[in-house]
């Protein structure tokens, strides 16, 4: 069962719009500065439940629901050698947490897990290098792009349940650096990426072939892909635009849905999701299905229906502080909003 559904809704200083419903709060009193928040399906004692994962630079904690509106730390992995930079979501994977570590850029990817054989929590390195982009895909697959002085390597790693790598497949790299990857809903073996040259590239994960490189256009530089959907012969890609700044608001698109025809390489914008009115720019965002969420420079979190291009909810910064993180939980429908202090709010969307 979905852990969030077991929790009693409470509305202390909740969102302004009804589309986000406050579910519960989780407070990490140890946390000096939260760097990421996420969720993972966890199976224990014959049941599978949604657990929350919080990361600071030196520790990653797994939280379990103990009672309505009460979360307890189930375990903490201490990672003191290299700082944690982000949690890498692994959709539909159980009992595995993936994290990226590094100084300014990602230097290694680790899996954090519980081993029932030894009844212990442990972690293992699955990839090292100068990693530029990483994504977790369904069926325990992980794709990374890394760079040496001479060349770029793009690789898919099939993860084992015990935290190792079962198989590796090299993907043909494009000429310019890959900045982000996104799984393609509707075609299991397809993967899209965005590049530093503002192109969308498409791979065949089974063969490693680079199938297509399509330019996004000059109007929206440094586009980052979040999701892709194949439908009716078109490839719909959700892009965010990190340069959406307050100086351009309102009307500056944070997210765009762009339809690409992979056969011709031509594209057209389908829908824009713009900054809500007010002096705030885009800091970072996350997309699940057709819902986008972003932290704004004002410390608020905004949520959009990306197919309608409508901002559907805003979580204001409030007296307790600015929001720093906004992530959709695995399986969608639950938004995790985090503050630097380590406090995380769960909202049902």
């Amino acid at each position: 069962t979905d852990a969030a559904e077991q929790l009693t809704p409470v509305l202390p200083d909740g969102p302004r719009e009804e589309s986000l419903q406050f579910v519960s709060e989780l407070k990490d009193s140890w946390c000096a500065c939260a760097v990421d928040v996420g969720s993972v399906w966890w199976a224990a004692a014959g049941r599978r439940e949604l657990r929350v994962v919080t990361a600071s630079e030196s520790a990653v904690s797994l939280w379990e629901p103990l009672a309505p509106d009460c979360w307890g730390r189930a375990y903490t992995w201490h990672l003191t050698e290299v700082p944690v930079i982000q949690i890498v979501p692994l959709p539909d994977t159980c009992n595995l947490v993936c994290v990226a570590l590094g100084e300014l850029e990602i230097g290694e990817i680790r899996l954090l897990l519980y081993s029932s054989e030894t009844d212990s929590f442990k972690h293992s390195v699955v990839k090292t290098g100068n990693i530029k982009a990483v994504v977790g895909l369904k069926d325990r697959r992980l794709v990374c792009s890394s760079r040496t002085m001479q060349e770029q390597q793009v690789e898919m790693v099939l993860l084992s349940e015990t935290g190792g790598s079962k198989n590796r497949q090299t993907l043909m790299p494009p000429e310019d650096t890959v900045t982000a990857f996104a799984e393609v809903e509707g075609i299991r073996e397809a993967l899209v990426g965005t590049t530093a040259g503002n192109s969308v590239v498409v791979w065949n994960l089974k063969t490693g072939q680079l199938l297509r490189k399509m330019h996004v256009g000059y109007s929206y530089p440094a586009s980052i892909c979040h999701r892709a959907y194949s439908d009716s012969g078109l490839l719909f890609v959700v892009l965010s635009h990190p340069h959406a700044k307050e100086s351009e608001s309102p009307g500056s698109p944070v997210f765009r849905v762009v339809a690409f025809n992979p056969r011709s390489g031509r594209s057209t914008g389908v829908m824009f999701s713009c900054l809500p009115p007010g002096p705030a720019g885009y800091l970072e965002g996350d997309v699940w299905d057709t819902a986008g969420a972003a932290v704004l420079t004002s410390g608020a979190v905004a949520v959009w229906d990306l197919l309608r291009g409508r901002c559907t909810a805003v979580l204001p910064a409030g007296p307790a502080g600015h929001w720093a993180l906004a992530r959709w939980a695995t399986g969608g429908a639950v938004l995790l909003a985090g503050r630097c202090s380590g406090t995380v709010h769960l909202y049902r969307y």
Binding site: I187, E189, A190, V202, N204, T207, Q209, L210, L211, R212, S230, S232, G233, L234, L235, A259, N261, P262, R263, S264, R266, S267, T268, V270
Partner: peptide
């Protein structure tokens, strides 16, 4: 968008591009 904007559309684009792309 119309087909004329985007060129001819193929429902099997993934298989077709995989057959055409270098291995």
């Amino acid at each position: 968008c119309s087909e004329s904007d985007l060129g001819p559309i193929s429902l099997n684009w993934f298989e077709e591009l995989s057959a055409e792309a270098p291995p």
